[in-house]
Design a binder for these strands. Structure first.
Lengths: 208, 208, 208, 208
DNA sequence: AATGAATGAGTGTTCATTCAT
DNA sequence: TATGAATGAACACTCATTCAT
């Protein structure tokens, strides 16, 4: 199995700067329109227009409509890594790390909520192999989280029960805002939701 | 706004028993095929075949492909009410009610996971008005849950913080199994996940 | 290697009489329009219109535009077999057979000249496997011809030299009308060309 | 009717040597790729690449993709004239001329078989006017041939029957190798085919 | 009430051609 | 003169929906 099958789409355009710029515009445009109307309800022309290029030009940077979806998901994961990574950097004690992890995860998902929604809704359209690659990525993300949890648990002499389930829960919970936000957005602001979630997780983590 | 716009699809067939039977078959068939391949990848003919009727006949019981989606979502909510309702029936003390609520919610979502997945993935395809009606239904479901939580909190002298968020969280959490199951299904059986979730929720609810 | 890959296209329509009728209409229509404007210059809609059905309906009887080409070629070969077959039926002596063979071949190609032109021009568009199958068919056709030539040669004590080349030449020569007709059609009528060709072949066959 | 419409394509490039060189490369490249994959299956970019220039540059030497086809056909006819011309040059007696004519024709078509195949297959794509011009050219070629035949017939007191048909046949027959070669190439080498054809023609020409 | 054939609107993708650099 | 990125017209094919039987 080659890794090639699951990497970024190829481009017929040679200038790498141009490729980066146009792809950025395409991802941003695709996130907006896919989020607003759904992947299937959008024509490639809609994305092109939103990106400020012509329909045909899209295919100089992407091999198929599905590639656009792929790039969104990829973008989301890279952003998660970036955000959680820089949240963890200054953390020294394990307690600080836990805090950073929770806050980073919440922040990442909150910030990239449109990416996230599109990913959840439409991931099943990306080709089997690629999808599997993302499952893998997501699993690694989760393991990264598990390691920190275990480390903290040991240091703080904390029982966290099944660390597999617990770490899964940590990466899962922030999607709460996205899944249910429509029901409480008017009453509670985002900051409060973040705090609520972090509190809830911390309480849930202390098992005894 | 007429209620008509958001009620079940109309049928050209007069015999109500036949209508019920065929619709049941259609819902079951649609859940299976939509779950397996996604709403857009399935043709109406696929659903018809799975339901054991011909393509044309589908339109004697349903007005559009979207109706099938609608019926699935409706079916899911009815099932939720039924399951949580009968779980709560024997409960007397508020503690028993809380227990019944959590367990019922978990059970309902676990049992109807295919309905649930299809609903999450594809709800955005159903027409604006109908979708709004479902939001309303979901909101009521959640309020029902909130009322019980508040009642219990008062009786047990428990602080549950923001009851709006908390009740939302309760109806949200069981989807954990569905969203992340792929990452732990091999290691942890379903019963354990249910217990883990119920524990976690109970712990999270005690705010002091 | 399955034979399936090279057989007639499949149809979603179950009524075999309807299938036969519509396919007949499609072949006739396709021959006309492909002959007149070329395979690539014709849209499927052109063929549909010429066949008196709608664009979408074409695909109830055919899986792709290429299938139309395939059916034309197939039709041509079947017609050849039919025509040469019935020309040979009454022939008794080997001399009569030779005569029948030459006349039948000329008649078949003359009658189905549009099929023939389309086939020559566009055969290279049909998929590798199918094309190979037709080469095979054509080769068998030619062998059938070779057998008769050899038989006659023995009976009549005739030297025909390389029978492989000679039989190839016999099936090839009638295409003369089609390839060069534009240059002499105004001066010479078809019957004369047929006689000329048959004479030429007979003369060419007597080698000594 | 202006001659302009049917002459070689115009070029934006002034340097005539460059034009000649690039066009040579383009024709050679186009013959190869059109022969291999067919005119429609080849993109202009394919030809450009095979010719060692960039896609855009093609249009400095050619006005359209069709021009490439045109140039191939033109190249073929020029080559025919050149080859038959120099074959005829040393011929003195009419018998030598006949010999030279037949051999030259066979040689020309054999040598330029790729040109020939592309021409037969794709000529119908070139615009009506230009196509007509080629018909004219081909007719002249044929007349040139007819004149020789008639001359020889008179000198040798030979009946060749309908000289229009006969001369057409002479220019037509060499395409035998190309049309049917796939069926005998493995068994008979090219030289043998050439001899077979020349024999056959000579025999066929003697009508008595 | 059931069937399945007919319809045609809708869309992803290709590629000849143009043109700014 | 050469390049290669941008363009948009064109088209095969799908499939939800209709309707005659």
């Amino acid at each position: 199995m080659t890794d090639d099958a699951v990497t970024s789409p190829t481009s017929s355009v040679k200038n790498p700067i141009l490729v980066r710029e146009r792809r950025r515009a395409l991802i941003d445009a695709a996130v907006e329109v896919f989020f607003a109307k759904g992947y299937h309800a959008c024509r490639v022309a809609d994305v092109a227009e939103a990106a400020g290029i012509s329909q045909g030009t899209v295919y100089n940077y992407v091999n198929s409509k599905e590639d656009l979806l792929f790039m969104i998901v990829e973008d989301h994961f890279l952003a998660y890594e970036r955000i959680v990574g820089s949240a963890l950097e200054p953390a020294r004690t394990s307690r600080e790390k836990l805090d950073a992890l929770l806050k980073g995860t919440v922040e990442a998902i909150f910030k990239y909520r449109k990416h996230y929604v599109v990913m959840l809704r439409e991931l099943h359209h990306v080709e089997r192999n690629r999808r599997r690659a993302f499952m893998q990525l997501a699993a690694e993300q989760r393991k990264f989280c598990e390691n920190i949890l275990v480390e903290i648990a040991e240091e703080e002499n904390l029982k966290i029960g099944n660390s597999l389930l617990m770490s899964n829960l940590v990466v899962f919970l922030p999607s709460f805002l996205i899944s249910r936000g429509w029901d409480f957005r008017k009453e509670v602001n985002e900051q409060e939701v973040a705090e609520f979630l972090i509190d809830f997780m911390e309480r849930g983590l202390r098992q005894n």
